[in-house]
């Protein structure tokens, strides 16, 4: 007798994967905590977090929109202005260090830089440059509207029970003064300046530390909050690392995946949902990707979310 003698079928490749159609691969996730129908859930992170929010809402679950658009406004228009995408209008947050920066600002644990970009007669928020299609009317409005988002983010931390964070990538851009931009200046506003703008392809230790600090900060302000991590399966759009994009993507996702595993293994209130594996594993033969091999197809999103809800039901019974 040895430990592998009694492992369940899901633990053996032959039974769990090789002998099955990809659509029959199951039991991919054993959730640590229930997310019931009325559990307030917030979603942030890479773009895939939006699909998570949509799926939760479609199921009638309590996705918390802390910075809602007026109800009269169509979803299309609201989303064009960054509403109803994430639980606050932070726009995508691809790196844990950027999440930490937003959280520190929200809880007044770090000073917010005064940088504002100019575009014609309008003003761009460097920390969410595409949140408004035409930018804001004045630098004061940039600050004022960001303050609203920071207040909403505070609400997300203090009033929710589950904080979903989709990790996007490790490549990041910093100002030499130490603060981080969500995207490279010059690509969607602002002007790139190689003396001031510094590329950092974050290593495991940096990602792990930032994510750990972000979680600690959130728990400090809400000791009940639980964290559900996932890694966005969407590959990098472009890399500044010098590596081939495929190699850079693999490195990025591997580091994020490892950091998520490390933190999830260390804390009962941190869990990891394997959405990344469902799309990226060779077993699924890329079938959940659109022809550009970058975007996740609606069928892929459905499959991922079905895995999510099935796992919740298997572990904790029907959603109530």
């Amino acid at each position: 007798m040895h430990p592998y003698h009694d492992i369940p079928p899901k633990s053996r490749w032959k039974d769990a994967v090789a002998a099955r159609s990809p659509f029959d691969v199951s039991d991919l996730w054993d959730p640590k905590f229930p997310i019931a129908q009325g559990t307030p859930v917030v979603t942030f992170g890479a773009g895939v977090a939006q699909q998570f929010a949509r799926a939760l809402t479609a199921r009638g679950m309590a996705w918390f929109d802390a910075e809602p658009a007026p109800r009269i406004v169509s979803k299309r228009l609201a989303q064009q202005f960054g509403y109803r995408r994430f639980s606050a209008r932070t726009a995508a947050i691809d790196t844990p260090s950027l999440l930490l920066q937003w959280l520190r600002w929200a809880f007044a644990e770090a000073a917010i830089p005064g940088e504002v970009w100019i575009k014609g007669e309008r003003f761009i928020d460097p920390f969410r440059p595409q949140i408004e299609p035409d930018g804001f009317a004045s630098p004061e409005t940039v600050t004022r509207m960001r303050d609203l988002t920071l207040a909403a983010l505070r609400d997300c931390v203090t009033k929710s029970e589950v904080f979903v964070f989709a990790l996007g990538q490790t490549e990041s851009w910093f100002h030499r003064d130490g603060y981080e931009y969500p995207i490279c200046p010059g690509t969607a506003g602002g002007t790139f300046d190689r003396d001031r703008h510094i590329f950092v392809n974050q290593r495991f230790s940096q990602v792990h530390a930032a994510l750990g600090e972000a979680i600690t900060l959130m728990r400090r302000h809400n000791p009940q909050i639980r964290i559900l991590l996932t890694v966005s399966p969407a590959p990098l759009i472009a890399t500044n690392s010098g590596d081939h994009i495929l190699v850079a993507t693999t490195q990025s996702k591997s580091i994020l995946r490892a950091a998520a595993a490390e933190l999830s293994a260390a804390q009962a209130f941190v869990d990891y949902f394997p959405g990344y594996e469902i799309v990226s594993a060779p077993t699924f033969r890329g079938m959940f990707l659109e022809p550009d091999q970058q975007s996740i197809s609606p069928a892929g999103v459905d499959f991922i979310m079905r895995c999510f809800f099935d796992a919740q039901e298997r572990m904790f019974g029907m959603h109530r």
Binding site: P70, L77, P133, M145, L148
Partner: peptide
């Protein structure tokens, strides 16, 4: 209906949509 703080452009777009 639009009684909340929002940007000028979003308010204009929301009014136009209504």
């Amino acid at each position: 209906w639009l009684n909340q703080e929002m940007s000028d452009r979003f308010r204009a777009a929301a009014v136009a949509e209504i």
